[in-house]
Computed example of a mutant assay.
Amino acid sequence: MKDATTPAKPCPQCGKPAVHKFRPFCSPRCKQVDLGKWFNEVYVIPGEETIPANDEDGE
């Protein structure tokens, strides 16, 4: 178990020390920047490509 003296990992956005309240980020701004990257598909989780139902031929 970690205690209060164990150094935290740095913020994945800016590299500053992480703040417990916004963990793993250092601030609400870095948290929102990260969320924006997910929304804009900068970050993606690889998977199988699917064809949306409205693009199928004949139906």
Rank of each mutant, 00 (worst) to 15 (best):
D3I: 13
A4E: 05
A4W: 12
A4C: 14
T5D: 11
T6F: 15
T6Q: 09
A8R: 15
A8L: 11
K9N: 13
K9S: 14
P12L: 03
Q13Y: 03
K16N: 05
H20T: 08
H20W: 09
H20E: 03
K21W: 00
K21L: 07
K21Q: 07
K21A: 05
F22Y: 11
F22G: 10
F22D: 14
P24W: 03
F25R: 15
F25P: 06
F25M: 12
C26K: 04
C26E: 04
C26M: 00
S27N: 06
S27T: 07
P28V: 00
P28K: 01
P28I: 00
P28D: 01
P28F: 00
R29P: 02
R29G: 01
K31A: 00
Q32G: 01
Q32D: 01
V33E: 08
V33C: 02
D34C: 02
L35S: 07
L35H: 11
L35G: 03
G36Q: 04
K37Q: 09
W38H: 12
F39M: 08
F39A: 11
N40T: 10
N40G: 13
V42F: 05
V42D: 06
V42E: 05
Y43P: 07
V44M: 10
V44Q: 08
G47Q: 08
G47R: 05
E48I: 15
T50H: 12
T50F: 10
T50W: 08
I51G: 12
I51R: 12
P52K: 11
A53D: 08
A53G: 11
D55K: 15
D55N: 15
E56S: 15
E56G: 12
E56V: 15
E56W: 14
E56Q: 15
D57Q: 14
E59I: 02
E59F: 12
E59R: 15
